[in-house]
Amino acid sequence: MLTYIIRRLIGAFAMLVVISMVTFGIFYVVPQWAGATPEAMASRYVGRAATPETVHLVAERLGFYDPVVVQYGNFVKGLFAGAQYDYGAGVEHCPAPCFGYSFITGQPVWPDLLDRLPVTFSLAIGAALIWVVAGVAVGVLSALRRGSFFDRLTMGTALAGVSLPIFFTGMISLVVFSYGLGWTPPGGAWTDFSENPAEWAYNLLLPWITLAFLFAATYARLTRAGMLETMGEDYIRTARAKGLRERQVVVKHGLRATLTPILTLFGIDFGLLIGGAILTETTYTLPGLGQYAILAIRTQDMPQVMGVVLVAAMFVVIASLVVDLLYAVVDPRVRLS
């Protein structure tokens, strides 16, 4: 078991290293290969109006003349130890983890990311709760009543849920529930949990449901399929032969085995979401990581984009690590290998 955990931890760490290399490569090395001179890259920081001397100076201070390996080393060092940026006029300290400075605002990227994280996290956690509970419940009920009206209705709805894009369902529900009925606040409303939990939930209700609808549909279909398979297993027959009540057969024996593969999917979905629910955040103008990413891409603010990408990747890696470890807890057969 211990070797299993250690091996997974090492694997996760190696994954993060690879991701940082690839990200660094895409944002700093590829442009240089593509012919961008250090000056061209530096000019992003100082604006088009700067003199060539200034640009040259900045490029030198930012290390763009150094070999790629040294640049990567400085980048990693910045992540862990922080970095010093000498702008000539003074030394600016960028504390760890340093993702550099925004081209546009001139502010360090990390505090911005930290600001945005609670929004995305709130969105993801609420939606995940709804979609897991709803998706699994609907999936189980459909499987137990296969072919019934309920089954056909929910599976039809689920098909719609999978096929309708979020910006569509999101827009429709905004128009109906916010602008039409006035039940929910219009887009852009955000209250921090620590300020007012009730308002926090109220503001997020519509985004939660919209986002959860998409995932719940997938989870319902998967749960139904898994449940149908599990309920045909020999050990379910054994459970019934013991005289167990049908509800316990379903919950203790059927659901337990069905949920294991769904757990894997959930970990990865959740990890991805914390990295930014781009469509939902954009539709409801929520100040989360996804919206931040879109803005960064639109303004070609490389340090910002890179920061989001690295943070998002880290969440996915951590989530799948947690799932792997949980898997070993849930399924005793995994512990052996």
Partner: peptide, 25 residues
Amino acid sequence: VRSLRGKKMAMIFQDPLSSMHPYYT
């Protein structure tokens, strides 16, 4: 009939590996 199953009448199946739940001791 359920209340009799397991108590008054019980069954042994062919394949003991697939007939026992893999997640419980």
